[in-house]
Design a protein around this nucleic acid. Sequence first.
DNA 1: CTATGTAAACAAC
DNA 2: GTTGTTTACATAG
Length: 888
Amino acid sequence: KERNSKSNVKPKACRPIILQRKHTVLNNSASVKQSDGYISRRKSNVFEEGANTICGIEQINQNTNNNASVKQSIVKYEQSELSASQPWCPTHNETGSQAPQIKNETEHINLIQEQCNVVASSCKQSILQGPQNSTNNIMTKQEPGFSNNFSTQTLPFHIQGMKPMFQNIPVQGFQLRGLNSNNQSAVQEVPVQNHFQMHGNTEHYSYQHYEAASDIQHSYNNIQVPGYYQQPIQPSSMHSGHLVAQPRQDHFQNTMSVGMTPNTHYQVHGFRTPGKFHDQAVDDSLTNITWLGRMGVNNFMPVPLERERKVFERDEKRGRPPYSYMALIQFAINSSSAGRMTLRQIYQWIEEKFPYFISAKPGWKNSIRHNLSLHDIFVRQVTTGSKASYWTLRSDLNIRPLTLDSVRGTSQHSFQESPNNHETTWSLQTVAQGQKPILPRLPPRPYILLPVPLINNETNEKEFSPNVQTSTFFNSTPISSQYGDRENRRSSSQECSLLADSGFVSDISVFTPSTHGRNFLGCLISRLERQFLNSDCSPMLSQTRVTSGTKRSTKKSRKEPLKTLHDSFNSSVNFEKNEVAAQSKYPSSPSSASQLLHCKPSYKKDKHKSPKLMTEESFNEILEDLGSPFKSCLARGPDVDSMMSPRSDPASRKRRCSWGSPESSKEFQHRSKTEREVTPSSRCIRRVKSCVGDLRQNYADMQQKNLTQLPTSTPLNKNKWQKTKRCNDMDLEDSKENMLQCFQNTTKQRDDQWCNDKSDEIGEHSIPSPIPSSSKNPAFDFFHDLIGSVFKTPDKPSHFESLTPERVPLADITHQHKDTNDINVESSAVSESIAPPNPSLLSPKYEPLDTSFSKLLDISGGSGTFSRHNQFSDVPDLSLSWSNFSHF
DNA sequence: CTATGTAAACAAC
DNA sequence: GTTGTTTACATAG
């Protein structure tokens, strides 16, 4: 819009390549060397190309001595006139490309083919010219260890003629086909790591955001999927006055880097997820590059993966439209002139447009209703005087109305009904054609833990005092619910689930930015520890009692769900008693135990005969484990030895990879290069995660020894673990041993040592509690202590200094923020109550970074992210932002 | 962990 | 029986 209004010229458009994420083909299967040399092991995303995807590379079994640098190939991307309905496409001039005008499709195809060949041959050549002496075979190890044998080589190219942000999209991955150590042919997908996560809404990203994001590693995640729910950006979280600025071109001209081993036998194919498969025989010739020549706009299909093929064939057989129910409902409602529809009309519309549903299982209507209720964007409009109730779309959503036409593209290409009944072949190309590109989602920010005040049942006041009884806390703190309130439905509650698979308080939820305002794990652990460490107790069980299994027989009465932590806790403490009570109250409801036995295939499969409660001993052990590192992490100074940066500690990386490496975590990836070193906060996070990994292993071990069996919904077992983490027995044992050793021998000792030293030093109890002692302003006290401890003069100043290269004098910060006069105190009572901290209380020697520190402080979600409301209505949202501390 | 699909209990009409 | 809400579980990513 901005562009058009300025130039008053209708922009020429080029069609962006639009891709859809379909599957994670191989979890943690391949390493990708990013431009900063950092190796990521994140999931490999496989994409489905829209109009054109290019690049096929084929490695020939041939070594050369040539070590020439990798050549860069440029592919001029298709330029064509599109309708003004796609004004987001860049103009010819803006992109600076010299793309030719395409006259017809044949010419276009030829051009693309030619360009592909250019790219392919160049890449091929560069591969051939790679380092010579390596004797590694790419498949000497199956994933995940496979990547450890990789060297990397960069294959830069980009496509011109596209909006910059799309320039590095074209190839999402390669398929490496080679020989394993047994000389058997094998296939490996290698993802291409792009820098930006394409997600979210278009209009609200400022130039600054791009600036900020440019040095942060982003993974290419997603291009808009038809029907995908575009989450709205709350107006309050937008930067006012910032329109869409074109990102600087150089932010997006990142080369792609693919980890691969030179001098080995492999083919590299651009690969894709299924669109329309051509079941032509895969050309397995290792020296054949002619397949490129067969590629056309509608005929780009290198080697479909077996699994993808299955998935797609399944969907295709079902003739099911590739839209979610949510999208379908939006289509329907948007199709009506009144912008509203009754449920029945929605049914009818969907059946009319998608005949599949006429003969589908009747359950789809249930799902429609479910979706209507589930998603906030659907609002029921009750008309007075009439019984009719209409479903409308929430008007305050700043999203483009989703219509079927908009996702179908031109009608002639939309989808062709096959002769068979309702089988429909979807041309995903044209589905994608109508899609509007979307801009990157801003990265999550670093965050810190904050205490959550507890509700005193008697006074009904929030307090931080440690003498609040656990029961008080439990009684007052509701269990997160999928339907806690309309604003915090499913997603947020899932995100905030309190209890992990392992049966105790969830580790992860504490550390996700979006749950920062609801972090009471610290409080919880602390209280549990204080109150129950030496008493008879069982661990809390699942978030809610197991009330249904996979197959529920009809007409079973339902047990009351557990509403609060108190319920949950009591339920677990008095498990057997409650079972008896529940049985008498709900005779037709199966007992938890019987459900576990009869309704959980996984339990049966793993021969978990009966659920047993955890022993007090094991519980205490876990509590202790969980509590100690959690707290000491907060209090400790930097410790680069025990939590060395994975980059500088290959052994550590290897050790952790099988368990979900810290460096694959979002927190880690989204940190900029400099920040990615071990900072106190990152160390804290990673340590806790590491500890949780240990705890889970403990659980697994205990389960194997039949010591305990938690009646949780998802039993933790070796098989599942392996499936998830894709590690074999060796890895599992290896990791277990390594982690345990690392944790027990190193970390714990160091913890203890450190805590003892600190204890002497500060003359208080050995481990500073995350719970603030009572004071006038406990929230601030804690906050201050936390920051103070995080940035405290370290035991090893050299490390600390080396990890924080930039420091600004505190005075500068203070001055700067005074000048801004940017006091933006939220309505949150807690925020308001926080007094200005006393700078002198901070370490005089080491001031925090201005940037990272402000990021630490600014945990409110920030612009462009979705700040979810507090899950728990009676717990104030402790979101704090730097602006709250301007006087700081 | 998130998003989605599915089944089903249940209430109100 | 329909509509709407909510809980639960499964699966894919």
